[in-house]
Design a protein around this nucleic acid. Structure first.
Lengths: 333, 333
DNA sequence: CCTGTAGGAGACACCGGTGTCAAAGGCAAG
DNA sequence: CTTGCCTTTGACACCGGTGTCTCCTACAGG
């Protein structure tokens, strides 16, 4: 296997690698064969320097739910598997007053092709504007459209929550409690809207004290459960804004000797592992987070992914679904 | 604020940034001040090109437990927060026969400073050798020492499992079942050894059929629960190799009307969110995974972390702890 | 057969740092 | 004050690609 002297300049190789159109098929094929034969791998650092852009996707997140982050991450990785891209993970501190500066320094240093913003920080418009200014592509992931379609992947949480609560109504529940998500979270607001829509549609009102505050954590579920189940006339069903809080409510029910689902129906949101690990298994809303990761990547870097013209046709509102398990039954009284 | 003409060459700036010793304090301070004043941030891509090394740490994982991966990741990020390093996440497919090639290409392309190997792939000696050959520093995370101290962070799982099972014995349990982890996992083997040590120490033997296979998944817990709790003389306590399987066993107990902990004590391993979300809350072994992430970073890149000579003094076997909750009680008969 | 033209390929500078080695500067000794 | 040595600083090439501009070549048309 003789190694021929360089018949083409490195610039020509560069053209082949970057799919330049000013090159004949003959040359292209010759170079491609040589690349394959020699196992040549372009140095990404050199490319990054010349392009002033690193072939990376940054995942910026501040989501308390590990499963959500990792599932999304997995979706992104699925999508970029056969590309030249890699994934940089960057948790940020939503509460920090240096948030914007931190992210700015990070983006300026790493110069990723694009950034993905997971909720709840995806709801921060300043971050999106920062990406825009720095010339970093971005995609925001949310529970409802946050931006124009070029920058947003979302799911139809509101509708599905309404559907789930509608099922409770169909089963005969009239006293339905609600455990809210954290204040200021779009996802929480969407879930709450869906809940109220279902109630309105059924002509029901929310009795005083039937809506408890929460923050997506188990402990908040405990508190909410204590509050709701100590009422003189407690709800016969409770919709919790996420699974962790639903687990908290369920454990309070156990403590009080209230049987689930016989005496109390519970619905959660997320379809986290917890939903199937508790007993009875929790009816919940599955959020297609992994698929959203794939979709987000396709929106962010279609030019790196060898996908056809299809990409822009795909919906960027993904379908959440209500998953019925054993925590829901008709009211006992 | 006048911008003085360059009084020093860029090489001198480079020396300051890279903490070269061949530079006077006076020059160093002047340059440092200028850097701060101008907000100069060295371009990592250029440095990467010149150093032939990217200032990144790669996290290679194939762990089914999202919480574990994310906790570890968080620990690493805690440790490198104030450094110039960033974290690249790379899931790998343990089963793939191209595993080594995939990782090789990844490491050759990204050229990270170092790689962290999470279990179970940390148990793959070929991967460690590959890192060695490519000149990529590495740290292996395991349930027991896998390599010399320069390359390993582990925890004392075996001892703590023995301790936990010892507690069961102290409470009076004599018929103790075991749900195993996946075959070939070091972590599973360590937990099993700890279990058997405790039994031996107490002079107990494992009755036939008291050890059920498992794979760390909930469904395996269900199967194991069905098997163990259907025995003519079922165990009064079961140690499960992880929390998910413990949750499965617990749900089978519920289905059979067996009260936990009154009629059956259950212990898990991981202290995952599931452990506190199920009812009764699960006694389990907490694995200090986040702290291990910090420690792994200190072992991997002490020179980037502004830590004193202390680093090498720290133990690289971290302490797991037995967390007692409500799933354990004396046997009822 | 010669010339004009379009499009493919190459030369060279450049991206923003670091390695190497030579030069400059400071200080002590003569 | 001069010399010599050691330390600090600077000049320049280089890392491995890409952008720009120029040159060359093949082909069509006169």
């Amino acid at each position: 296997m003789s190694r021929p002297s360089p018949a083409v300049s490195k610039k020509t190789v560069s053209r082949v690698i970057n799919r330049s159109e000013f090159i004949t098929d003959k040359t292209r094929q010759a170079v491609e064969q040589a690349i394959k034969m020699l196992g040549f791998v372009p140095n990404p650092q050199a490319r990054a320097l010349a392009f002033r852009r690193n072939f990376l996707i940054a995942l910026l997140h501040d989501n308390p739910n590990a499963q959500t982050v990792l599932n999304f991450q997995q979706g992104v990785l699925d999508a970029i598997k056969d590309s030249d891209l890699a994934l940089l993970v960057r948790p940020v501190d939503r509460g920090s007053d240096r948030l914007l500066d931190d992210v700015r320094v990070f983006l300026e240093k790493q110069r990723p092709i694009g950034a993905m913003l997971l909720p709840p920080i995806s709801e921060n418009d300043d971050l999106a504007a920062l990406c825009e200014n720095l010339g970093v592509r971005y995609v925001r992931v949310g529970s409802a459209p946050l931006d124009d379609a070029r920058h947003c992947v979302s799911s139809n949480d509101r509708e599905v929550v309404a559907e789930a609560v509608g099922k409770l109504v169909e089963l005969g529940h009239r006293r339905i409690g609600f455990v809210r998500g954290p204040v200021g979270f779009r996802s929480a607001a969407e879930r709450e809207r869906g809940f109220h829509e279902a109630l309105s549609k059924a002509g029901l009102t929310l009795p005083a004290g039937y809506s408890a505050p929460g923050n997506y954590r188990y402990a908040a579920g405990i508190e909410a459960g204590e509050a709701l189940l100590s009422l003189a006339e407690p709800p016969t069903a409770i919709f919790c804004s996420n699974d962790e809080m639903a687990a908290g409510v369920m454990s309070v029910a156990y403590g009080k000797g209230i049987a689930v689902p016989a005496d109390l129906s519970i619905i959660g949101f997320d379809d986290s592992p917890t939903a199937t690990h508790i007993w009875p298994a929790l009816s919940t809303v599955r959020w297609p987070i992994r698929e959203m990761g794939v979709r987000a990547a396709r929106i962010l870097v279609p030019d790196f992914l060898d996908i056809g013209a299809k990409s822009s046709d795909e919906a960027n509102v993904m379908a959440s679904t209500f998953v019925e398990r054993q925590s829901v039954a008709p009211p006992s009284r």
